[in-house]
Computed example of a mutant assay.
Amino acid sequence: MAVISEPGTETETEADAAEAEAEAALLLPDLPLGRRIELPGRGTTFVREVPGPPGARTVVLLHGLTASGGLNWFQTFGALGRRYRVLAIDHRGHARGLRTRKRFTLADCADDVAALMEVEGVDPAIVVGYSMGGPIAQLLWKRHRDHVAGLVMCATSDRFLPGRREQLVFVTAMGAVAGTTRLGDVVTRLPVGWVQRQMPAGDRGRPDSFRRWARAEMRRHDWRLVAEAAASIGTYDSSRWIGDIDVPTTVLVTTEDKAVAPIDQARLALKIPTATMHKVRDGHVVCARPLFGGALRRAVDDTVSRLP
């Protein structure tokens, strides 16, 4: 299995990284337009799309817990869109995603993605899952194999640690990026020192323009469904069948992750016979960093290079 460390992430100085990040954070994200799509028999969801070059292969982006298609992937739309058609869905209960009285399940999210691909007439796609999106991508392969040409899994695993501290970090990670929300209200009741240790230094000083946008995304959540999503992640376990995945796969390991242990991410790559592993030196909210766009594009390119 090939292991690739992302160029620049190991040697870049902290000063250079901080300067680049501060410059990028001064502007609101340059997001692609989104639209609501009716999924027959399921409900209405929301998708952001980059059309890509004519005839480009489609990449479907599946976001993490408490995020949205925009919030999780805003650093990647430009890098991916130069080569691929990109679809980023809001999962049920998240932002503008599908609303339902049913209990949240990761399997239903996978079926939502399959329904979206059918409505859009998408050929088998490269499916990219981040954090919670990893299990959804895995289930999409298991339940709708014909829709999946290849996989990229970032900051995720085939099962998640049951410890209370790890679960809390996982649930609040995107809340730390966004600032104050209903989820942020929970964070404020925790010991100040502990909270500060979980929040990446670069995010605590983000300008209000970014904060306002991120808060607006998260205020749209249906928090009952988000809480149920957290419970679903806590009980998820695909270890019995993950080794059956037979499509080209790339696992992007976040080596400083406090929410999903890097060793568990690496084990995921080892369990999948078709997987290669890339590494990026950052934590669970690397998706908010400027470097993430290039890192993800290289991971997607790796998967595409191994397609039949």
Rank of each mutant, 00 (worst) to 15 (best):
V247N: 06
D244Q: 13
A201M: 11
D237H: 02
G202W: 14
P273A: 13
S239E: 11
L225W: 08
P207N: 08
L268T: 13
R267S: 13
V247S: 01
R220T: 06
T274N: 00
R224L: 06
P262R: 08
A230R: 03
L225R: 10
T254A: 14
R206S: 06
S232H: 07
E256W: 05
L268M: 15
A259W: 01
G243A: 05
P248E: 05
P248Q: 06
D203K: 02
R219F: 05
F210Q: 12
I233L: 15
R224H: 03
G234K: 08
G234W: 06
A231W: 00
E217A: 11
T235G: 13
T255H: 03
P262N: 07
W241G: 07
A229N: 09
R206P: 04
V260Y: 00
P207A: 11
D246H: 02
A269Y: 02
R206N: 05
P273E: 10
G234Q: 12
P262T: 09
Y236L: 06
G234M: 09
V251R: 03
L252I: 10
P207C: 10
V226Y: 10
G205F: 10
M218F: 03
A201K: 13
I263G: 12
R220W: 00
L225C: 09
W213P: 01
V260A: 01
T235E: 13
S239R: 15
G243V: 03
Q265S: 02
F210N: 12
R267W: 07
I245L: 11
D222C: 07
I272D: 00
R267P: 04
V253I: 14
G205Q: 13
S232Q: 12
D246R: 03
D264T: 12
V226N: 07
D257N: 11
A201I: 12
D244A: 13
A227V: 11
L225V: 08
D203Y: 02
I242E: 11
L270D: 14
D264R: 14
L268H: 04
T249S: 13
A216Y: 02
W241R: 06
V247E: 05
D203Q: 14
D208R: 12
T274A: 12
T250S: 14
G205T: 15
S232R: 10
I233D: 06
A266V: 13
K258T: 08
D222L: 08
E217M: 15
A216S: 15
A261P: 12
G205Y: 06
L225T: 10
T255A: 10
M218A: 04
